Every structure is written in C-alpha cells, then in structure tokens.
Computed example of a mutant assay.
Amino acid sequence: MDIGKSIFEAINLLGLIHEKTQSPEEKELLLIAAEALRFINTTGQQYEFEDYREDLGTEGPPMVIAGFATREDAENWLKNHPKPPHMAFVLIADEYHTVYYWREHNLRRMPSTPTVEYHLEEMMKAGLPPPVATFDTREEAKAWFYKLPQKPSQAVIQLGGEPYLAAYHRNIDHLAFHPFSLVDRLKESKPQP
C-alpha cells in the first residue's frame, strides 16, 4: 500500500466527516487529526509513520526512538538534542526510559519506566512461553538473530540458563534482551492488597 496515498485519502475522509459533524469540540479534534497527518507528510516522515504502523501490528514491546549503552550517553544525547522528543521511549542498557521535554522551561528528563515489565507480565499470563533457542552469551544470541531471514519483533530465548525476551527494534536496528525475571521486580513494586 502506498503510504502517501493512504495519508491523502485519510485526510480527505476526515474532511468529509468534519463537514457532517455539528459539535465544535469534535470538529476541532478532526482538524487536529488531519493536521497530524499533514505534519507527517510535510516533514517527510511518511516512511517512519509506515514503520510505526507496521510495529503496531507486531507482538513486540513498544517502539523506541533510540538506544544507548550507558546513562551518560543518553544524558548527553538529550542535553545536546536541538528539539528533543516529548513522551517517547528510549532504551538505556536495554531498559525502557521515557523522554520528557517541556519547551517553555527547556526542562529535559528521562526517568525509567516499567514498560517492558508490563509487556513481559502480559506474555506470562498463560505461563512462561517456551524458548525457541538456547545460548550461553548475548553475542551468540545476537549472531543467531541477525542471521534469521525474517527478524521477528520478539522471540523467547534461553540465555545463560534464564528465560529472556529478545526484542528487535527495527527502526533503530537494535536487539534488546529483557529477562523475564523483571516481572518479579514489577510485582515487588506493586502495592499489595
């Protein structure tokens, strides 16, 4: 499907709905939706939007916009970014963090967030999925994954004797490893009834 054509057709559809809508609040929301699609087109982000939509259809954890080996690397990126994102996910040492940026005060923050923990918890509701492969090291797992003809958005593997989720972030070509034991940490942080 041609994403540019689809965006154009979606804008036209929103316009038709806008004409039939009576509520000023709903008219404004339809305009915002159409303007968001125009923004994607005029800023040349059609392919990024197409990739985003493709990622939504996968079973993997939420999309990230960047990955960093260390907190220091991430902080330098955020500090020097001319137009930082607001409420976007990044990985720091394969842990999810949310980037917050408030333009009015040039305030930039990047707290950790239990995003992947909730994803793993959801996966485990029917019991721990069986691993598709077993490895001693991350390097072995990475080599195996990158040799796959079709890279899945996620795969359960055994890594060093523990179950892990190997999550592939196509948009940044990054393979992250998340131990299922993170769910225990999430349970510990939840208030007990």
Rank of each mutant, 00 (worst) to 15 (best):
M1I: 03
M1P: 01
D2Q: 05
I3M: 14
I3A: 09
G4I: 08
K5F: 07
S6H: 11
I7R: 02
I7T: 06
I7K: 03
F8M: 13
E9P: 10
N12E: 15
G15Q: 12
G15A: 13
G15R: 14
L16I: 03
L16F: 10
H18P: 03
E19D: 15
T21W: 12
Q22Y: 13
Q22A: 15
P24Q: 06
P24W: 03
E25G: 07
L29F: 05
L29Y: 05
I32E: 14
E35V: 09
L37P: 01
R38F: 10
R38W: 11
R38V: 08
F39V: 04
N41T: 14
T42N: 13
G44S: 07
Q45D: 07
Y47D: 12
Y47C: 11
E48W: 04
D51T: 12
Y52K: 05
R53Q: 10
E54I: 05
E54W: 15
D55H: 15
L56W: 08
L56T: 09
G57N: 13
G57K: 14
G57A: 10
G60S: 12
G60V: 09
G60L: 09
P61C: 06
P61H: 05
P62T: 13
P62K: 08
I65V: 15
G67I: 04
F68T: 13
N76V: 13
L78R: 05
N80G: 13
N80D: 11
H81P: 13
V90S: 02
D94R: 08
T98H: 04
Y100P: 00
Y101W: 09
W102E: 14
E104V: 06
H105C: 08
R108A: 10
R109S: 12
P111R: 01
T113I: 09
T115Y: 02
V116G: 05
V116Q: 04
E117N: 02
E121R: 08
M123L: 15
M124N: 03
K125H: 03
K125A: 03
A126Q: 11
G127E: 01
P130K: 05
P130I: 06
P130N: 06
V132Y: 07
V132I: 13
A133P: 00
T137A: 02
T137E: 01
E139C: 01
E139L: 03
A143P: 01
A143V: 05
W144V: 04
W144E: 00
Q154P: 01
A155D: 00
Q158C: 06
G160W: 02
E162D: 10
E162P: 03
L165D: 00
A166P: 02
Y168W: 15
H169M: 10
N171L: 10
N171T: 15
N171R: 14
I172G: 07
I172A: 08
H174A: 06
P179H: 00
L182F: 07
L182G: 12
V183S: 05
E188V: 02
E188K: 06
S189K: 09
S189E: 09
P191H: 07
P191T: 05
P193G: 08
